[in-house]
């Protein structure tokens, strides 16, 4: 069969595949997941960018029917599209946790997620534990973190501190994490990060019917409306279980609350394409929201049992 080359960029690797012309998104996505050994596939997607707007490969649509640049290799980013409500309960496999850890760490360092200075230092210390293992002053000599990107620039610029002073700060926390294996340190990282207000929120610039600029946030718990000046605290929230229906028509988007006494919320987004993406994110997040409130599937039960065994075995080894 005729094929074309795709490049898949994950948080820590790049891979190339020969993709058959007739393949649907799902065929490529499954191949990537199999190659990575990833089974908790429902959090992830293959992302591409079109005219500065993020888009995700549709599972039931041919890869080549997407509005992607046809220049080979056709590039996709394998990324978490949906976030768990509780990382420790929901992320079972080590590879899943690791990919989330890398993605969230990048968002924090790139200042896509606001993180206060103290939390930034603590997170950095867990990232160091994950990478370097237990602190050993005879190995981890002064300057050992000099080449590492560990803190958001905003945090560094906030204080008059030298690189050595930061290293000292981070190391004093790092030394406290003795005994934590890589996967444990990464999970501790995620447990702190998931409490940051901007964690897991997809923001979109919108205008309400009066023309006021606002932000819409879509996350694991529902839809949120923000003042553009404050991405941390929503002005209004619509939890998934309080929404009856969501719909769009061209650039207009409508949220109908379950409670008929609460006003329908209508807004405009910049493009029809954006509304399609918002609806997609709503459906996916709501689906996971419902799944979490039911018993685990057999597959997940089995995965959790396996993970527990694996953890016990590792602990014995240590």
């Amino acid at each position: 069969p005729k094929t074309f080359t795709v490049r898949i960029v994950t948080m820590d690797a790049e891979m190339e595949f020969n993709c058959e012309m007739k393949w649907k998104g799902k065929d490529l996505f499954d191949l990537v997941c199999r190659t990575l050994g990833l089974r908790e596939t429902w959090f992830f997607g293959l992302q591409y960018t079109i005219k500065d707007t993020v888009a995700w490969l549709k599972m039931d649509k041919k890869v080549l029917d997407h509005d992607v640049s046809k220049e080979e290799p056709v590039t996709f980013h394998f990324l978490a599209k949906f976030y768990p409500e509780n990382a420790e309960e929901e992320l079972v496999q080590e590879i899943t946790q690791h990919l989330f850890f890398l993605q969230v760490k990048k968002q924090i360092l790139d200042e896509k997620i606001y993180c206060p200075p103290e939390a930034s230092v603590l997170l950095a210390s867990y990232a160091v534990q994950a990478k370097y293992g237990d602190y050993d002053p005879s190995v981890h000599k002064r300057g050992f973190l000099a080449q590492e990107e560990l803190l958001p620039k905003r945090v560094i610029n906030l204080y008059q501190m030298t690189q050595e002073m930061w290293e000292e700060r981070i190391t004093s926390w790092y030394a406290e994490h003795r005994g934590r294996a890589r996967d444990e340190a990464e999970m501790e990282y995620l447990k702190i990060a998931q409490d940051l207000e901007m964690y897991g929120v997809n923001y979109f610039a919108i205008r309400n019917k009066k023309g006021t600029e606002l932000l819409l946030g879509v996350d694991a718990l529902g839809l949120h409306i923000y003042d553009p000046e404050n991405r941390l605290t929503p002005k209004i929230s619509f939890p998934w279980n309080e929404i009856r229906n969501i719909s769009y028509s061209d650039k207009e988007f409508t949220i109908k609350p379950l409670d008929k006494k609460i006003d329908v919320f209508k807004f405009n987004s910049s493009k029809l394409r954006v509304n399609k993406l918002i609806l997609q994110l709503c459906i996916g997040n709501h689906d996971l929201f419902m799944r979490r409130r039911k018993a685990d599937s057999l597959e997940v039960q089995q995965m959790k049992a396996q993970a527990r065994e694996e953890k016990a075995r590792k602990q014995m080894e240590r």
Binding site: N245, S247, Y248, K294
Partner: peptide, 22 residues
């Protein structure tokens, strides 16, 4: 025309989704 018109609209009923899952 219908296809194009449909392409401009989308709707999701959370209530129906919940019912179908139970």
């Amino acid at each position: 025309y219908f296809a194009r018109k449909a392409n401009h609209k989308g709707s999701y009923s959370l209530v129906d989704a919940l019912k179908s899952k139970v």
